[in-house]
Write a protein that binds this DNA or RNA. Sequence first.
DNA 1: CTCCTTGCAAATTGTTTGCATACCT
DNA 2: AGGTATGCAAACAATTTGCAAGGAG
Lengths: 153, 153
Amino acid sequence: MEQKKTEELLKARLKEKGLKVTHQRLMVLSVLEQNSGRHMTAEDIYGLVSEEYPEIGLATVYRTLQLLWDMQLVDRLNLDDGCVRYEIGHLLKGDAKHNHHHLICRECNRVIPFGDDLLDDLERHIEEATGFHVLDHELKFFGLCRECMEKVK
Amino acid sequence: MEQKKTEELLKARLKEKGLKVTHQRLMVLSVLEQNSGRHMTAEDIYGLVSEEYPEIGLATVYRTLQLLWDMQLVDRLNLDDGCVRYEIGHLLKGDAKHNHHHLICRECNRVIPFGDDLLDDLERHIEEATGFHVLDHELKFFGLCRECMEKVK
DNA sequence: CTCCTTGCAAATTGTTTGCATACCT
DNA sequence: AGGTATGCAAACAATTTGCAAGGAG
C-alpha cells in the first residue's frame, strides 16, 4: 500500500501537467521504491527495469529520472564518483528515516551513511532568514575513516 | 604574504613526496588563491592561467587540481551543474570565513551562498561516535528561492 | 486523431590517459 | 643523468538529443 501511494501521486502529477502515464514511468518509480535506501545510478535502475521490461532504453530512464526529480518524487545525490544517484527517500520521510548524510573517506573512498535529522532547526532558520524554501538537503563529510587513520599511524 | 604561505606549503609537500615544483603547479595554486571565494571549474582556472602562461594544457590543470586536492590544499565542490569546482577555502579558514553551504533553487538554478560555522559541533560528534576524522564538509540545500516562490503564487 | 513518449544511434561534455618530449633536482 | 611533468590528441564515460515510429488520452 506504500507502493500505491507514490504511484497514485505520480499519476496525479502527470495528469495535472497533461503528461502521459506509461509503463516505463511506473516501472522506474517502482524500482526506486523497492530499493529505497539504496543510492541508485541510472544504469542500476536500467538494469533492474530491464529484467521485467527488456525493451526499455537507457535514454528513457534518464528522461524519466529527470521528470521524477522535477516533480519532486525522487531525490538526487552526488557522491563524487562520476555519476548522479537517485533515491526515493524524501517522499517516505514520514515513516522510514533515510540517511541523507555521508562520510566519504579520501583515502579508500568508502562511503559511510550517517543518520539524519540534525538539520531541521537549521532549515527553519534558513527559511526565516532568507525566504528560501528548503525541500531537501545533502550533506557530505570528507575525511579519513577509522581504518585509514590507523594505517597512517 | 598570505600568498607566500600557501606557496611554501605546496613546495614543502611536493618535496616531501619527491615531486617537482613547476611553474604550472605554482600558477594554478596562485590563481585559486587570487580568486578565493569563487567556485572555479578546471576550465575557469585554465582560462586564467593561460593569460600569463599560454602554453599550459588543460590536462595539466586537471592533473594539478587532483594533486592539490590529494594534498588537501584545495577543496572540491559539486553544484550539480555537470562540473566539479575548486576553491582554496579550507586552507584560509583561519582568517577569511568562507561560505561552504549553498542554497540551490530547483526552479531557476540560482546558487545562493550561505554562512558556515554551524557544523563544528556535529563534526566533533561524528569523530567521537564513529572514529571518522572529518577534514571538510559540503552542505547543499535544495528548494525554491524567494523569487521563484512568489512566481508560483 | 493528436500529441506525448519511446528506442535507437549519434552527438556532447567533462575528464582521463598514452606517449614522446621537456623540465626539475 | 634520471625520473617526473607536460602538451597534445585520442580515449572514455555519463548524459543528452534528433528523429522516425509507437502509444496514451
